[in-house]
Amino acid sequence: MPVTGADVRRIALALPGVVERASYGTPGWRVSDKLFARLHEQDGVLVRLGAIDEPELREVLTDAWRARAPKRLVAELAEPDG
């Protein structure tokens, strides 16, 4: 089943230290004030929501988050209760 913007929001906000803040007038998600994901309607986007399933979306968002998150938050995600 294709994912939606609501799925992106839910998955992104479940990651440690994430806040939602508009970016260029569209929903965006940041960690330590660094943008790691946003939604927009333009062609040529990196992830087309209609062509990805939820496990794959979770992996893509988590990888983008890891690239921006401080080490302490990455360690928090790796904890069994994190």
Rank of each mutant, 00 (worst) to 15 (best):
M1D: 04
M1Y: 06
M1G: 06
V3K: 04
G5A: 12
A6P: 10
V8H: 02
R9C: 01
R9W: 00
R9L: 01
I11K: 01
I11R: 01
A12R: 02
L13A: 13
A14T: 05
G17S: 15
G17K: 14
V18D: 01
V19A: 09
V19N: 08
V19Y: 04
V19W: 05
V19T: 11
E20L: 06
R21Y: 03
Y24V: 11
G25K: 04
T26L: 07
W29I: 00
V31Y: 09
V31T: 15
V31G: 08
S32R: 12
S32P: 02
S32W: 03
K34S: 14
K34I: 07
K34L: 11
K34Q: 15
K34N: 13
L35A: 04
F36P: 07
R38N: 12
H40V: 09
E41A: 09
E41V: 06
Q42L: 13
Q42D: 07
D43S: 02
G44M: 07
G44D: 01
V45C: 13
V45P: 08
V45Y: 09
L46S: 10
L46R: 09
R48Y: 11
L49M: 11
G50K: 12
A51F: 04
I52M: 05
I52P: 02
D53E: 11
E54R: 15
P55I: 06
P55C: 08
P55L: 05
E56P: 02
E56Q: 10
L57P: 08
L57M: 13
R58V: 12
R58G: 08
E59W: 14
V60G: 04
V60T: 06
V60Q: 08
T62K: 02
D63Q: 05
D63W: 02
D63L: 05
D63A: 08
D63M: 02
A64V: 09
A64R: 14
A64I: 06
A64P: 08
A64G: 11
W65K: 03
R66P: 00
R66H: 03
P70N: 14
K71D: 10
K71H: 08
R72D: 15
R72Q: 11
L73V: 07
V74I: 07
V74N: 03
A75Y: 07
A75Q: 14
E76Q: 09
E76M: 05
E76I: 01
A78S: 15
A78P: 12
A78V: 14
E79P: 10
P80W: 13
P80Y: 13
P80E: 14
D81C: 12
D81P: 04
G82F: 01
